[in-house]
């Protein structure tokens, strides 16, 4: 074992953890900005950050305890004696920094809270029974009529849905910033591509107010279009919406 190096084992572990923190905080947002071609940095979400830090620290501890030799070296850093001046200096820094760091944590904990509230909600509530059996009347028509319905639906979508959901159905319409529950991005494969037409029909017809309470209807800006749009128009909008977003409805399992 290279004794000379392992004298600083604890220092290296702590340095690695600090490095990890700064990497997640400042470097990774820029890396992801470049990778994903965004015009702005992509900050690491705080929960993700917490888990990465826990993993990082655990990894450091696991490494330091892989052998008794290592663990002795790890703690040995804190022992006095036969070290260089650098080691002596780092020891003192650790010694002073530890209580200060603890004090700082307590201070930041007891500052008057300003954290955003936790707002949990279920994004995909279950479809109410009365919508389950419905069928889009235009899906079974011949190709020409379908094409016409899609085109009519797209016009309606661009007129009524575009302000929030955007011309591209990507949830980036000019009104999108104002609603903290951002309008849904239909291009996202986790949204309308995972449901069938009926589900969208329910959402368009009853809107935010028709949501069950676990889906926080009071925060949803989705209008209930019942009364303002005809059912036929809604079915057409759905067809146009899938086409605009470039995704397909989930395929129904074939009933025998």
């Amino acid at each position: 074992m290279g004794n000379k190096r392992s004298q600083y084992l604890m220092f290296w572990v702590v340095a690695a953890v600090i490095f990890l923190f700064f990497f997640l905080k400042y470097v990774s947002p820029v890396v992801f900005q470049v990778l994903m071609g965004k015009g702005h940095p992509m900050p690491t979400p705080s929960t993700l950050m917490m888990w990465y830090m826990i993993m990082g620290i655990l990894a450091g501890l696991v490494y330091a305890t892989t052998s008794n030799q290592k663990f002795v070296d790890f703690l040995g850093f804190l022992l006095p004696g036969q070290g260089t001046f650098l080691k002596f200096f780092l020891q003192k820094i650790f010694f002073i920094a530890f209580p200060l760091v603890v004090g700082w944590f307590v201070y930041s904990y007891s500052l008057p809270g300003a954290a955003s509230p936790v707002e949990l909600r279920i994004q995909h509530p279950t479809l109410p029974q009365k919508y389950e059996k419905m069928e889009n009347p235009f899906r079974e028509k011949d190709a020409d009529i379908q094409r016409k319905c899609i085109e009519e639906g797209k016009v309606l979508f661009q007129t009524y849905c575009r302000p929030c959901h955007g011309s591209k159905a990507d949830g980036n319409g000019p009104f999108a910033n104002s609603f903290r529950l951002r309008p849904i991005n239909f291009q996202d494969p986790g949204t309308i591509a995972t449901v069938v037409d009926n589900y969208l029909f329910w959402r368009i017809k009853e809107g935010g107010p028709g949501l069950p309470s676990e889906s926080t209807p009071w925060d949803s800006a989705m209008p209930a279009w019942d009364g303002d749009l005809e059912d036929e128009q809604m079915w057409k909008i759905i067809m146009g919406e899938y086409d605009t977003a470039g995704v397909m409805p989930r395929q129904r399992e074939k009933a025998e």
Binding site: M50, I54, Y109, A115
Partner: peptide
């Protein structure tokens, strides 16, 4: 200390 990190981040 990790929990504290988390708090500040939030």
């Amino acid at each position: 200390s990790v929990v504290a990190f988390y708090k500040i981040e939030a």
